[in-house]
């Protein structure tokens, strides 16, 4: 027990250093000689890390539970795919366009938040996700409906065409770092404090001079922007997209990652993404139990630790200040 405390304290005190140290082996991943399949899983985890980080900004930090994050992911993917197919644009532009269009829809979805809260807001985001999917399914001229968009070109960063596993890996790594730094900087600032205060007590935040609508819109737009970028990468990486990839189930997967890893902790969200992508893959026999597992994760986390594994509570605090009966359990262990 004491060792655990020390470990947690060490983690808390040297967080930055540890994350930096973690970056070194991560940079070297393409040299480990992983199989193409493994590299694919790692790259996929990377996409989900961006999705989880962005949803975490909205749900974990600002407290707005969105059940429609996959919609922004999809909007970003379709935008870039169409731009790349029709105009042969470089990834730099398609990604930014994907992010911006997704961000615009985030702004739109954020508007009703002035009047809606909690459960109702979540339901509206769910409705938005379904409507987006149905539009993608029915707008044949633009999206080719259920047939999806095929032949999305490989991403080009200006004149450099990305086509090797290692290159894809570094591209997603750069995107993760950009997202991470941007969200982290945002959180640790005047804007970020305003977002967190809305999660903590909306009314008090308003009474302290925070324009609730403005900051909720910032959260929605920024979260959607980064989800759009993730979608953009996915479209180029997979070279094929269809409405099936951006369903409610997908939204739930992203939400599960944030909830498992930790609401309001970037490291937690990233951790949740990696776990929930890799566990079903590692236990191949359990593949068909994957969604069952997501369901169970949601229920169990809500009952046991709504703040997630690495939620923004100091871990040491929780271990010290648990309610009596829970403390007994942890001491037995």
């Amino acid at each position: 027990m004491k060792l655990l405390h020390k470990g947690i304290d060490f983690y808390m005190n040297h967080k930055k250093l540890l994350i930096m140290m973690l970056l070194v082996p991560i940079m070297a991943v393409p040299f480990f000689g992983f199989s193409p399949y493994m590299m694919r899983m790692i790259t996929l985890s990377g996409i989900y890390i961006i999705l989880a980080l962005s949803l975490n900004l909205l749900t974990g930090f600002t407290g707005q539970v969105s059940l429609g994050h996959a919609a922004f992911y999809g909007i970003g993917a379709y935008t870039s795919a169409l731009l790349a197919i029709r105009f042969d644009l470089s990834f730099v532009y398609t990604a930014i366009a994907g992010g911006l269009v997704a961000g615009f829809f985030g702004l739109l979805l954020g508007l009703p938040t002035l009047r809606l809260n909690g459960t109702y807001l979540s339901i509206v985001t769910l409705g938005f996700c379904e409507i987006t999917r149905l539009v993608a399914l029915n707008w044949m001229d633009l999206t080719r409906g259920p047939m999806g968009l095929t032949g999305i070109p490989l991403p080009k960063v200006f004149s450099w065409v990305i086509d090797k596993d290692a290159e894809f890996f570094y591209l997603i790594l750069i995107l993760i770092i950009l997202t991470w730094v941007a969200i982290n900087n945002l959180i640790k600032s005047r804007t970020g404090r305003a977002l967190i205060s809305i999660r903590e007590d909306e009314l008090a935040a308003e009474a302290m001079g925070i324009n609730i609508l403005k900051y909720k819109l910032i959260a929605f737009t920024t979260a959607a922007f980064f989800a759009g970028i993730a979608g953009s990468f996915y479209a180029h990486y997979a070279s094929f997209i269809d409405p099936q990839s951006f369903t409610f189930d997908e939204s739930i997967q992203i939400l599960s990652m944030v909830i498992l890893g930790g609401m309001g902790s970037n490291l937690g969200a990233a951790f949740g993404a990696v776990i929930l992508v890799s566990i079903p893959e590692m236990l191949r026999g359990l593949q068909e139990y994957r969604m069952l597992m997501y369901g169970a994760v949601l229920v169990i986390m809500m009952l046991m630790r709504p703040q997630g594994l690495l939620g923004n509570v100091k871990l040491g605090d929780i271990l010290n200040k648990k309610p009596v009966n829970e403390e007994e359990v942890s001491q037995d262990a």
């Binding site: 539970v65 969604m291 997501y294 949601l298 169990i300």
Partner: peptide, 8 residues
Amino acid sequence: ISTIGVSI
């Protein structure tokens, strides 16, 4: 969220 989990 908990009942979404149950649903899935």
